[in-house]
């Protein structure tokens, strides 16, 4: 079910992605953070399309940060990756605004920024804070979070 949910989310992103960029999102169905977020979203009462959009926002942020963190050494290829990362981040903003999540942009901007500062300073960092902040946002926005299962807590422990 979760894998299908992630698959649906990628399909939605593909549909909304401007074609001129020629970007194809490689669906990372087994990304542990994405899976954790998908599970969490399934425990929250909201319309399915909102769930898809929120997971899409999260996936785009992760993807952009990863592209910029793993640049190829070849200068031309690195240039292309820089552009891909920029494009994905700007698409995240458009996508979030289009689906009514300006508050998410406000919540995530400081933590995304902190990851980027650390990376510029060559300090160890990962996306755990972004994960936590997204969860915090979802909890605050929907307040009707169902009790978490034991399995779910375990997944959370592993990734966060």
């Amino acid at each position: 079910m979760i894998t299908q949910f992630i698959q649906d989310m990628y399909e939605q992103l593909e549909r909304e992605l401007p074609q001129q960029a020629g970007i194809q999102l490689n669906a990372d169905l087994y990304n542990i953070r994405l899976q954790d977020m998908a599970v969490r979203l399934h425990h929250v009462e909201m319309a399915h399309k909102e769930r898809l959009a929120l997971l899409g926002c999260y996936a785009l942020v992760l993807l952009s940060l990863r592209i910029h963190d793993q640049l190829p050494t070849d200068p031309a290829a690195a240039g292309r990756s820089v552009l891909d990362g920029d494009f994905i981040m700007s698409f995240y903003l458009q996508f979030a605004l289009r689906h009514g999540f300006i508050d998410l942009i406000a919540e995530l901007a400081p933590v995304i920024k902190q990851v980027q500062i650390k990376r510029a300073e060559r300090k160890q960092t990962d996306e755990a804070h972004i994960h936590k902040q997204t969860v915090k946002y979802i909890t605050k926005r929907y307040k009707k979070l169902y009790p978490l299962t034991q399995t779910f807590k375990q997944v959370t422990y592993d990734v966060v």
Binding site: H68, G85, M89, I105, K113, I117, R119, A120
Partner: peptide, 26 residues
């Protein structure tokens, strides 16, 4: 390249942080 990419990213994120934090006139 790595540092410059992140500095450029920082500048964009900082702008977003400032703009999206304003609560007046959503």
């Amino acid at each position: 390249v790595q540092t410059a990419v992140q500095v450029g990213n920082y500048m964009m994120s900082r702008v977003l942080e400032l703009l999206s934090a304003r609560t007046k006139d959503r």
